[in-house]
Design a protein around this nucleic acid. Structure first.
Length: 254
DNA sequence: ATGGCTTGACATTCAAGA
């Protein structure tokens, strides 16, 4: 069982790469973020033609999330019922007995931006909702772009980033609060190469110089974490022409 | 030096991303 998260930064631009990647990597569940498409423009037929089911919720220009699955998709929930939000950032569904939550956490922009308190309250509401979901679905996976680098190991230059958006103590505490629900950062269940990241800036040769951050995560509840045999970042599509600035993160379960 | 890419939109510059 392979569960994947990938921020595609516009599905309109990236659809050929998503289909190419799925052909090379026949996964069970692919959660994507930043589709940037209203639902009437979503390429459902193309994804179904590739042998997958898909559910999605989007809006114009910003945000938008989808779950692509090889298995039947049931009990779809769009957005957090505990948090009124016009921004389309969450879609959840039950697939193969697992509760799958695909989340695009607000970026926050900067600590003095009005988007930063929005990010923190959004994360607090996510925690409350995931807690309730866990009580109903012990087998739960929370995949997405968290816009949080949980640890200094997850930042190419921790000194330069200290106290900044993505690494601030309040954001890291919000991430820890999710782990405290009993979730496991599947990437850290295993020995990993140093300086493994999931996002690199388009500018200033960010990818070539590996100036990145690890902000895309697969969190697993205990029953799923116990079945997890690996979690890796696939850097291959980041090297393609006109890539997303994020790479897919793949968790494999027995 | 807030620059440097990339995407999308009531575009022909601006907002937003991270």
């Amino acid at each position: 069982m392979k569960l994947v998260t990938w921020n595609v930064n516009s599905l309109k631009v990236r659809l050929p790469q998503v289909l190419q990647w799925l052909e090379m990597n026949p996964v069970d569940v692919l959660c994507i973020q930043e589709t940037k498409l209203t639902d009437d423009k979503f390429p459902q037929a193309e994804i179904e033609a590739a042998g997958y089911q898909v559910v999605f919720t989007g809006q114009k220009t910003y945000n938008g999330v989808a779950i692509i699955s090889r298995h039947p998709i049931e009990a779809v929930q769009k957005n957090n019922p505990l948090f009124e939000d016009e921004q389309q950032r969450i879609i959840a569904a039950t697939i193969a007995g697992m509760r799958i939550i695909c989340a695009y956490v607000p970026n926050g922009q900067a600590l003095d931006s009005e988007k930063y308190p929005y990010k923190l309250s959004w994360l607090a509401a996510l925690r409350d909702w995931v807690k309730a979901e866990l009580e109903q679905h012990p087998q739960l996976a929370l995949l997405g772009d968290y816009n949080i680098a949980p640890d200094d190991r997850d930042v190419h230059d921790p000194a330069a980033w200290e106290g900044m958006n993505l690494v601030s103590p309040a954001e890291r505490a919000a991430f820890q609060a999710l782990l405290d629900l009993g979730l496991s950062d599947s990437f850290r269940q295993f020995e990993q190469p140093e300086k493994t990241f999931s996002w690199w800036d388009y500018r200033q040769l960010g990818f070539r110089l590996n100036k990145g951050v690890r902000i895309d995560h697969v969190l697993l509840s205990k029953p799923l974490a116990d079945r997890c045999t690996s979690c890796v970042v696939d850097r291959v599509p980041r090297k393609w022409e006109q890539p997303s600035d994020h790479a897919p993160v793949i968790a494999t379960l027995d």
